[in-house]
Every structure is written in C-alpha cells, then in structure tokens.
C-alpha cells in the first residue's frame, strides 16, 4: 500500500516537471513548477526528511514561486499583439532547426537517462554518517540531528552558505541597476489587503519564532524561520510599506550581516581560546546555537525580503517605461 502511494507521488513529480517545461504558456509553467515543488515536499515527508520538506515548501516552492510570479509581470505582456509576434518568431525559428542535431540530442538524453538510472540503482551500500552523528549527538547541545549537523558539526558550511545568500543579494542588487533605496510608495488602497497583511504579520512572526525554538528538538530551525520572517517583509512590501526603503541604511546593513558576523566572531573567539573554528564547549552549545540561529534567521529574512524588493522594483521600472512610451 505504501509503495503505491510512493509510486503515485513519483509519477506526479515527473509529470509536473515535464508539464512545467512543455506547457505552452509561461503562466502555466510557473504554476506547474509551484505544484512540482509541493510534490517534492510531500516526497521528502515520505522519506522522513521533515526539515527538508519545510525548507522546500517555504523557499523552493513559496519564495521562488513568488519571484517567478513577479517576473511574469515582465514576461507575460498585457498587450496580446506583442505576444503573438513573439510566438510567431518562435515557431519560425523552430522550423528552421535541423533534424540531425535534434536526433543527437534525444539519443544523448536517452543514453544519459539509462546511465543515470543504472548509477542510482547500483550505488554501493554502507558508508553514511548516521552512526557517527548518533554517537556525537549528546555533545552537540541539541536533540534534532539535522540542526546538530547544520550548526555544530558542519557549522563552517552553514556559515559559508549564509555568505552565499548575501552574495546572491549583492548580485541581484548589481543586476538591478540604480533604483535601489527608492522613496516609499503609497500604501495599498485596498482596505481588506491592508487588514489581512496587518493580521498576518504577527502570526508569521510568532510561527517563525516557534519554528526557530522547536528546531532544537524537532524539525525546524534557522532557515525555515528565516523564510517565514522574510515573508513578513514581502507582504509588507506588497502592501505598500517598502520597509527596506523606509529603514535607515545602516540598520538594513546591520540586519543583513548580523548573522554572518556574529557567527564568524564567535568562531574566532573559540579559536583564540585554543579550540578549532566553530568548536563550541558542550556545556554552552545549546544556548549558543539558539543565539546563532536567531541572528542567522534575522539575516536570512532580511536578505530574502531585500531580494524580493529589488526584483519587484525592476518590474516597477519596466511598468513606468511602458506607461510613458
């Protein structure tokens, strides 16, 4: 019975992936990709990886889906004539392509599929670090093994990864051009939207804090909490309170870097005391991890909402150009 559910879920994921690439309209592909992310989240619950499922549903399906939806403002033109011209250009260029390269591509893909299937089928057993993680778990200061790996055993990787998010933000900032830190827009006119946003802001904050705290013993942690807090920023931005622009510049910079900075300072302090980088004393590990996670979640939330705000402003500039011409 459980094999039937797994099989159906696998077929669903493959179908959604194929359809999101083959759908004729861009809007359809974006929504099917949304659904694909949620199907993957279900697959992760079936594989007993609840931490990963929360992260997938929140970041890969939720946050990225919002970014794609926002991008549709650019790419799904409201003027149908423009769209048809583009479509025509498409079909013309497709008929021109040669038969032989296509055949080679499909043959290569088929061969690659066979090789990949054989590779995952024959992957050797054994190895794995479950036993090692299990024996060291009491010293890590937390009870959830995933949190222990993320913030204690492999804290170095997590630290670098927060740096990657910051670099991602800087890259979006650089690609976005000059319209950062714009003047705040008019708050949304729709009273219902404002009320809903005002209602959900404390709820999301509370739920993020809950996930942060529960990460010590069960599924949850800094990344999941960071995305939920980032969702607050996105909602406020959409409701017409662009807090990135409202907040003083130094405060924004502080929020963005506090997680990375505190993590690094702490690591060097323990190095100066004679330990290795990010080697916490077991007695204080629990409370240190909670502090690091809180600061990391704040930084992640700030970075994600800033990425959304910057991408949204790219679209707004395009709208302005369209309306003036």
């Amino acid at each position: 019975m459980s094999l039937i559910i797994d099989g159906l879920l696998a077929i669903l994921a493959i179908y959604l992936a194929l359809q999101s690439l083959l759908a004729p309209r861009l809007t359809q592909s974006v929504f099917l990709f949304f659904a694909f992310g949620l199907a993957l989240a279900l697959a992760w619950i079936r594989l007993a990886a609840v931490d990963v499922a929360i992260t997938e549903a929140a970041i890969a399906a939720g946050f990225l889906g919002v970014l794609f939806l926002d991008a549709l403002r650019d790419f799904a033109p409201r003027i149908p004539a423009k769209n048809e011209a583009v479509q025509k250009q498409y079909s013309k260029s497709q008929t021109k392509s040669l038969f032989l390269p296509r055949l080679t591509l499909w043959a290569g893909l088929g061969l690659f599929l066979l090789i990949a299937l054989e590779a995952v089928w024959k992957i050797p057993e054994g190895g794995g670090l479950t036993a090692a993680a299990g024996t060291l778990l009491p010293e890590s200061g937390v009870e959830n093994p995933v949190t222990a790996v993320l913030l204690n055993f492999r804290a170095y990787d997590t630290w670098l990864e927060m740096g990657v998010i910051l670099i991602g933000l800087l890259a979006v900032f650089a690609a976005g051009g000059k319209m950062a830190y714009r003047k705040p827009g008019v708050a949304s006119q729709d009273p219902l939207l404002r009320q809903v946003i005002l209602f959900f802001t404390p709820v999301l904050f509370l739920f993020g804090a809950f996930l942060l705290y529960i990460g010590k013993t069960g599924p949850g942690g800094a990344f999941q909490a960071g995305v939920l807090w980032g969702a607050i920023g996105i909602l406020l931005h959409l409701g017409g309170w662009p807090f990135i622009a409202l907040m003083p510049r130094w405060l924004g910079q502080l929020l963005l870097t506090v997680g990375l900075g505190f993590f690094l300072v702490l690591g060097f302090l323990f190095m100066a005391a004679g330990g290795a980088l990010f080697e916490y004393p077991p007695a204080y590990a629990g409370i240190l991890i909670l502090i690091i996670e809180t600061l990391a979640a704040i930084s992640i939330a700030a970075a994600l909402s800033a990425i959304f705000a910057l991408l949204n402003q790219i679209g707004e500039e395009a709208d302005e150009i369209e309306s003036t011409t």
Binding site: A48, T55, I59, L129, A133, V149, T158, E161, I165, I300
Partner: peptide
C-alpha cells in the same frame, strides 16, 4: 534516525539554489 548529513546538505543546497535562481 535518517542520515542527517545529506539532509543538512540538501537544506543548504536548496537555499543556495534559490539564491542563484533569484540572480
């Protein structure tokens, strides 16, 4: 419990993939 190291890798991987997709 399931091997936590790949889980941690995948969580970091998802976040990095999303950051690069945003770029």
């Amino acid at each position: 419990f399931a091997d936590p190291v790949p889980h941690a890798l995948v969580i970091t991987g998802i976040v990095v993939a999303v950051a690069s997709a945003a770029f």
